[in-house]
């Protein structure tokens, strides 16, 4: 039952841990940017007049939300290679994570769009705003502001879920951990350190999103009230 913890061999490799953490953030960053775009488009498509596009967007959301990320990653990984396309593990990981977070973002954004009151749109039209102006100022931004908390926690979850891409040997934090523990035989210590790094990363992300929220939504900054 003797348990001796020795963190020094793990902490000696802080350089590769730092590289892994940077790659994790990079993966999350790419997936969040692309996923947010897909999400906005998907939500517009799902609510739009075209039945076929709405159905397709709905099928995409349900398909992704009801299957595990691990299986999605394998499908993208082997799917691309069976098409004869050869990509790095990092690219495959970024693509799979983007597809995944895109579906969740679509659903969240749709809820945001649904929450915009019809009277608001009619009032904007009554004020003579063009269709594009109405969409941009009255529908899109207030919708994003309203679902911003849900969006950001989904993005933090995505950063944590990016650990799964270690299974196709993308060199992010968890993969670095697997490598370190196989070299040092200090698995328990390695994973404790890595778990703490993830906690710090999610804290950093939440802080970043909070600051971004302040910058993006001046109304909330001035009035301090939720929309």
């Amino acid at each position: 039952m003797g348990l001796e913890l020795d963190f020094s061999v793990v902490l000696d490799r802080w350089q590769s841990l730092l590289d892994g953490a940077a790659l994790t953030l990079e993966l999350a960053f790419i997936a969040v940017i692309c996923g947010a775009l897909i999400g906005a488009l998907g939500a517009i498509g799902r609510r739009g007049g075209n039945v076929l596009i709405a159905r397709l967007c709905g099928a995409y959301v349900e398909g992704i939300r009801n299957t595990p990320l691990l299986v999605q990653i394998f499908l993208v990984y082997f799917g691309l290679s069976s098409l004869g396309l050869k990509f790095s593990a990092f690219t495959v990981a970024a693509v799979a994570l983007t597809i995944n977070v895109g579906a969740y973002t679509t659903e969240i954004m749709r809820a945001g769009f649904d929450s915009i009151h019809k009277g608001q749109i009619e009032a904007a039209e009554g004020l003579g705003l063009s269709k594009a102006q109405v969409y941009w100022h009255v529908v899109l931004w207030p919708a994003i502001e309203r679902v911003y908390p849900a969006l950001t926690s989904q993005f933090v979850l995505l950063m944590l879920a990016s650990s799964v891409t270690s299974q196709i040997s993308a060199e992010e934090l968890t993969a670095v951990a697997n490598y370190i523990q196989s070299e040092t035989y200090r698995s328990f210590e390695t994973y404790i350190v890595v778990a703490l790094i993830y906690v710090v990363l999610s804290f950093i992300m939440r802080l970043g999103f909070w600051l971004l929220g302040l910058a993006l939504f001046p109304r909330r900054r001035r009035l301090g009230t939720p929309l």
């Binding site: 944590l160 799964v164 270690s166 968890t174 523990q181 698995s187 328990f188 994973y191 778990a195 993830y198």
Partner: peptide, 17 residues
């Protein structure tokens, strides 16, 4: 703040340790 994957590794290797 911790991925489930890391929790899995922790309990698998941790309890073995």
């Amino acid at each position: 703040g911790t991925p489930l994957l890391v929790i899995m590794f922790l309990s698998f290797f941790g309890l073995a340790a």
